[in-house]
């Protein structure tokens, strides 16, 4: 895809904004529409766009497949770990009220961590699937 200069320039211009928008959706999901799932998908699509335009080898150099595989598990563990922490305070699984002294801010922190876990897992899954698909022709 070295010839398509319009595609390359436009993608180069768009990708930072797509990634930035994904982060906005991730951390602003408490106040507006969106959340971890949508943010993860948007982040992954920005990255996949990069892979499609600039070649899969360059994309692998930015984010190696090994890293996405680890992140795949990290998201689930972050979600589950946040739930397990409340066991130590004698509460139910995924009861975030005990994470901080104030139960409301505990809930807030818990939801933040959980959404982060969702986002990490979703985007890592999508990028992993893209890598696996894209390397099929070798």
């Amino acid at each position: 895809m070295t010839r398509h200069s319009i595609l390359r320039i436009t993608a180069k211009f768009m990708i930072p904004y797509i990634l930035l928008f994904a982060l906005y959706v991730q951390f602003h999901g408490d106040f507006g529409p969106g959340g971890g799932f949508q943010a993860g998908v948007i982040f992954a699509s920005g990255f996949i766009l990069y892979g499609l335009i600039f070649g899969i080898e360059n994309a692998r150099r930015v984010l190696p497949a090994r890293v996405t595989r680890v992140l795949l598990a990290v998201g689930v563990l972050l979600f589950g770990g946040t739930g397990v922490i409340s066991f130590f305070f004698g509460h139910n699984f995924l009861d975030y009220s005990v994470l901080l002294k104030n139960s409301v801010s505990g809930q807030h922190l818990g939801i933040f961590l959980v959404e982060l876990g969702v986002g990490i897992t979703v985007s890592a899954t999508m990028i992993t699937i893209f890598y696996v698909f894209a390397s099929q022709d070798k």
Partner: peptide, 12 residues
């Protein structure tokens, strides 16, 4: 303490 009810229902 989260204004978006969808987020609080989904996550909490």
């Amino acid at each position: 303490g989260i204004p978006n009810i969808v987020t609080s229902v989904l996550a909490s």
